[in-house]
Amino acid sequence: MARAYRSVLYMPAANPRAMEKAQQLPADAIIFDLEDAVAPAAKIAAREQVVTALETNDYGSRLLILRINGLDTEWGSEDLRLCAGPLAGKIHAVLIPKVNGTADLDRVADIIPETPLWAMMETPLGMLNASEIATHPRLEGMVMGTNDLAKEIGSRFRADRLPMLAGLGLCLLAAKAHDRIILDGVFNAIQDEDGLRFECEQGRDMGFDGKTLIHPAQLAIANDSFAPTAEEIDLARRQIEGFEQALTEGKAVAVVDGKIVENLHVETARKTLDRAEAIAAMAG
């Protein structure tokens, strides 16, 4: 069964109470963050706290990802030792910051030979190398780091994210070309529900699988925006039924609601139903 990635919540690994509460949150996935969400003085304690959380808490069927510090920092190597040691089998993936090329993934892959890798896409060089990065055999997903990217390119904030579109598009195409999961970046204004909904809808329209979030208050909007609507589910079912009926009549296409339905539309319809089924399974 397909997995849902509508809402992927960053969880500071230095906050045991937040990690405990995450057991009850309606997030499809959780990123336990040892990097940006943890102050330098708290890095060592955060490692111990995330190990305790993952050993004692029950996160159900949620995807659990650990974001490590970069291997060019004083904390990165020790973070990786957690993945190969106490957290082996307890996390589903390791998220690597500021991936510029496949060599950055190789360095991690050599240390943890089995855990799937995810790449933070947040630098200009990463954008330009996205097609190469997506080919890495251990890569499972890509996460847009739009805050860092905005800093790197010196862009201003715009609600339509015009300065981001080139980078978002490059990474999206790379991920889709190589069948990788790809998540949209965070929305910083946690009290701006209209702005969040606009950005979620924009990301969904572009083709992102879900959105990374920085606060539990953002979960409901992301879950709603990245889920198929009742109308989309109904249309998907009717397209599949109409096409299958057309095949029995020796036709290569069907007509549903006055529009041509070909095999490519049926593939999209099946993906819609798979997504709906995955979301229902999470809710159950």
Rank of each mutant, 00 (worst) to 15 (best):
P124Q: 11
F226S: 07
A159Y: 00
S155P: 00
H178Y: 11
A254C: 09
I153W: 02
N69M: 10
A18M: 10
A175P: 03
E132I: 01
Y5E: 11
R107S: 14
P40W: 07
L273W: 04
T123W: 00
E78N: 05
A252Y: 04
F208P: 12
A222V: 03
A166W: 07
I111E: 14
D234N: 12
V108M: 05
A283S: 13
A230R: 14
D192H: 02
D179I: 00
A88Y: 00
E140Q: 12
E267I: 15
P163I: 09
L34N: 09
I233A: 11
L149K: 08
A217R: 14
D72A: 10
A130E: 02
L82C: 04
T268M: 10
S7H: 03
P113G: 05
N129P: 05
D192R: 01
M19K: 04
G60W: 07
K21V: 01
V99A: 08
I68F: 00
Q23H: 05
R156S: 15
A276N: 11
C200E: 07
A175L: 00
P124R: 13
G141M: 05
S131E: 15
Q245I: 09
A276D: 14
L54G: 12
A166E: 06
R158E: 15
G141V: 05
R180P: 13
C83D: 04
M1S: 10
A254H: 12
K271T: 10
D160H: 07
R204D: 08
P26G: 09
A236K: 08
G145P: 12
V255A: 14
R6T: 09
R81W: 02
R204Q: 14
K176M: 05
A283L: 10
I182P: 01
D58M: 04
E201P: 03
T229Q: 09
Q245W: 00
T146R: 11
M120C: 08
V99F: 07
N263F: 13
V253Q: 13
L183C: 01
G70S: 13
S61L: 10
E140W: 08
M1H: 09
A13D: 07
N129S: 13
A53Q: 07
T146K: 11
A189S: 14
G258T: 09
D33M: 08
N147Q: 10
I30G: 05
L71F: 02
A166V: 09
V266N: 08
R156Q: 14
M142I: 15
Q239I: 07
I240T: 02
V94M: 14
T229W: 08
E20H: 09
L213S: 13
A119Y: 10
H178Q: 15
D36S: 11
D205S: 13
S7D: 04
L183N: 02
E132Q: 11
T229D: 07
F226N: 09
I182R: 04
L128R: 15
R6F: 05
G195L: 10
F243K: 01
A119C: 13
G76P: 02
V266E: 04
N263A: 14
W118R: 06
R238K: 08
R107H: 06
K90R: 15
L162E: 14
A29W: 00
V253K: 14
E232Y: 04
D205L: 07
P137I: 06
S7M: 05
A236P: 01
E132M: 07
C171N: 15
G258V: 04
A45P: 01
D160G: 10
E199N: 09
L34E: 12
Y10S: 11
L63I: 12
A119E: 12
I31D: 03
